[in-house]
Design a protein around this nucleic acid. Structure first.
Lengths: 249, 249
DNA sequence: GGGAGTAATTGACCTAACTCAAAGTGTTCT
DNA sequence: AGAACACTTTGAGTTAGGTCAATTACTCCC
């Protein structure tokens, strides 16, 4: 059974109407081309896709789309950062993901039926995204079946991350959940320690990990006082990941 | 950073070696054909795929594959029921999913690189599965690009379910998590109430919902005493889903 | 059918984490 | 620069839910 959505009060800012602007800067193009969904496309096809897309600028906290809105586009982040979240019937805001430059989002909706956004998307700071018409991408896939392989790989990867999320979220205590989250944030091969940047403000990381901001703060303070992490704003330095893992056991 | 796997003590039963047996019964074939990954295949291709596959019988609690094992096959459930789980470094068992007849699993690994199982899979009761070689399916997709569309739709759907899981798991109290879980189990359109069969033994549902079996039991007892559900073994009758949702708010 | 083993329930106790409140620290806007 | 606002931290009190222990109910075998 599906839950019905009733809360819709807190967001007064309107959904953005596109600001037209060409997408032609070198860096942006390079980033786009290095994304698995686009890297296989040959120059002509990519160009055509970009021509049909629009570049959008979002202000801090600006809403890009709403949950359950018909989904005619998916997005590629050029700059800034966004977050995906849901609102439940009592209006509680659940952060599901944060999206960094070079990432795509809402791309899974291409094949939903009917295509509706599964969550809200808002900018965490001023950001630019490329708004790509679902139909344009779909048409291209159909006329160039070889592209489908890359898309399949991409989607399969997404599907796998479900296991990962579930593994963290079935951890029953807040401290260990947070530790697991931090470990996952460490770049691969950083067994000797490393720095991690929280992809969300602390209060939203807390929400993502199903705990209160106060709990998050206290756990971090505790790890800090035990010399397990050093904290500088949203940057955390983890000197001994192995010890952290042992503690979380 | 990836966590290293150290616990591997509790499973003494060996990984199954295939029992060869043709897959030709009408019901099984019909079920297979109605799965989105196979429904588009024309008869010849499907037949060929089946010929390359093997039918496997699993006993109660028998392990089908282990996490991190190289994944050369994916599976279709003919009968019985399986569960997917992970073991963390302290040996705690986290149930991630249960698989019913007519479902596929490990199919996302087709495109993983390197292809390794992301979790353990074991039979919850005596079961039969069809073991399909990844390569056979992949070859078929490549030689018949039209099939890729169906596969894409399937994978996209899987990816969407991540949001759903996260939405439940970010609910901060056990009672509401359980209620959400039950509501999701209700067939679509059962606003007037209906019966739900727990897809897992209660203690594993509890694990899936990040709570203790005792907590699960107490919450259910409480809902029962408030007339919100009637419980008969693993079958729950929910008379007034709307009221349940209101309570969980 | 009886015994072993597993799953579920119930009770008592205790602690992790929530709630509310207030103060501190940044950040943005004018 | 200063006001307004959002985010973070800290403290105190409370409670949801975890832990441990004991009982009951199933299930599977022999």
């Amino acid at each position: 059974m599906a839950l019905t959505q009733t809360a819709e009060t807190r967001y007064t800012k309107p959904v953005l109407v596109a600001v037209n602007k060409p997408f032609d800067d070198e860096d942006g193009l390079k980033a786009l081309r290095s994304h698995p969904l686009f890297s296989e496309l040959d120059g002509k096809d990519l160009q055509h896709l970009i021509q049909q897309s629009r570049r959008i600028r979002l202000g801090h906290h600006q809403l890009l789309y709403r949950q359950d809105m018909p989904a005619h586009h998916f997005f590629f982040v050029i700059s800034g950062r966004l977050r995906l979240y849901r609102l439940d019937s009592s209006g509680i805001d659940r952060t599901l993901d944060s999206i960094a430059p070079g990432d795509c989002f809402a791309e899974v909706m291409i094949y939903a039926d009917p295509p509706r956004y599964a969550c809200y998307a808002e900018a965490l700071k001023s950001s630019e995204v490329l708004m790509i018409p679902v139909k344009a991408y779909q048409d291209m896939l159909e006329s160039n079946p070889k592209y489908a392989q890359a898309a399949l790989r991409h989607y399969a990867k997404r599907a796998v991350s479900r296991f990962h999320d579930l593994e963290i979220m079935t951890v029953q205590n807040a401290r260990d959940r947070l530790i697991r989250y931090l470990i996952d944030l460490l770049p691969n091969g950083a067994e000797e320690g490393g720095e991690v940047e929280l992809p969300l403000p602390k209060c939203l990381v807390a929400s993502r990990l199903a705990m209160q901001p106060e709990t998050f703060s206290r756990i971090l303070a505790d790890l800090k006082s035990n010399g397990l992490v050093r904290v500088n704003r949203s940057r955390l330095f983890i000197s001994d990941p192995q010890r952290l893992i042992e503690i979380s056991q």
